[in-house]
Computed example of a mutant assay.
Amino acid sequence: MTKKLTPEQINPWVEKIINNKSIFSAIFHVENEDRSFVHTAAAGDIQPDSKYFIASTTKLYVSAVLLRLMEEGKISLEDKLDKHLPDEMVQGLHKYKGTDYSRQLTVQHLLSNTSGIPDYFFHKQPDGKTAADALIAGDDQPWHLEKTLEVVKTLTPKFKPGAKAAYSDTNYQLLGRIIENITGKPIEEVFREFIFEPLKLQNTYSYKDITDTSPAKFYAGSQPLWLPRYMASVTVEGGIVSTAEESARVLRAFFNGELFPKERIEALKKWRMLFSPGVFYFGIGLEKIWVPWIASPFKPMGETLGFWGQTSAFAFYNSKTGLYMTGTANQFNGKGHQAMGNLMFKCMKSAL
């Protein structure tokens, strides 16, 4: 299926991205099912083997851990949050239109982004600003779960649990604490034990040392951002560092049954379309790229599943072409997502 896809095609596509003045680095890795075709292209101030923050692609790793714990009978999607979290953490978490739904919240509500709990990262606080605004302005500060809940409990939920879907990093911070309580281990140790070590990853780790300057910087427009305190505090929602090749290794393991029985994936495909941040489908701990019909009217591309990160980091698998695609444009403002999305579409169309 990848006979039409060559490095000579891919390299110029990646190099062209840098011509956009708001994108200063790009790395794109693609491999097929049997790994007879494997290629990593890079342009700008990044190399093919560079380490970078995979951002919210980390959430795919969270899904893998939870599916493994479900297989072991230690948690279920129907579990109420107060089964795994202390009372003071759940209390007052979701009060909506005069009703307290806090004790009705389930693991599935968190993992599917249907809890209605505000996103601490983009939700406007009483002063009209968001946590993202402060970080982009260079105010590097940690956002641990306790701080997040202190803010979130003062905000109005978006909707009744299960009524709609809205992206919320708060959900994943709560899932991280649930995982830690079940395993009795910090989330970085869980990631290492469940994923990094079994897959023999040498360049993938949870970012914790704020003096570590090896990951590539990301940008907000033309402004470089270096936020070590923040990144070290949000391990479960976006604090993993990896390379494009090792990110593809995890992506492949997610879909081929190495981390949990692959039969469980079908149950995750309960899609709801989200329009922020960006347009895509969100299932239960899994994203699907929205592809308009006009993009490939005569050769449908099929499902492209995986995860986006806010910095345009991505990891997606297309079953129709058998392509695993990972990488980043290290750009916060959305233009990187558009550029890397276009690259994925080009590769899939060439491989059809």
Rank of each mutant, 00 (worst) to 15 (best):
Q331T: 01
H94S: 13
S22H: 04
F159D: 04
A216P: 03
S319A: 11
D169Y: 00
D34A: 11
F121Q: 06
F218H: 11
M1S: 15
F298K: 14
E71Y: 10
F121Y: 15
D140L: 08
S222D: 08
P277R: 07
P297G: 12
L93N: 13
N318H: 05
I294C: 12
K349H: 09
T326D: 10
S222Y: 02
H109C: 01
K59G: 10
H144G: 13
G44D: 06
M1R: 12
I240W: 00
L81A: 00
K59V: 02
V14R: 06
H109G: 02
A137Q: 15
R68C: 03
G138E: 10
W308C: 02
T2V: 14
E246Y: 09
K288W: 12
K51V: 03
H109S: 03
A220L: 07
P48K: 04
E8R: 14
T304G: 04
A315C: 10
G128S: 03
Y96D: 05
T328A: 10
L77I: 07
P12Y: 06
K147R: 14
W13K: 09
A131K: 07
P142L: 09
N203T: 09
A329P: 04
F332W: 12
V236C: 03
H144R: 12
I136N: 06
E78H: 03
H123C: 14
R264V: 00
V14K: 04
H39T: 01
I179D: 08
P12A: 07
K97A: 05
K124S: 15
L77P: 09
D169A: 05
F298R: 13
P12G: 06
T114H: 08
E245L: 14
L67E: 04
A55T: 00
L60P: 01
T311A: 11
K124Y: 04
E150K: 15
H84M: 01
F121P: 05
M70F: 10
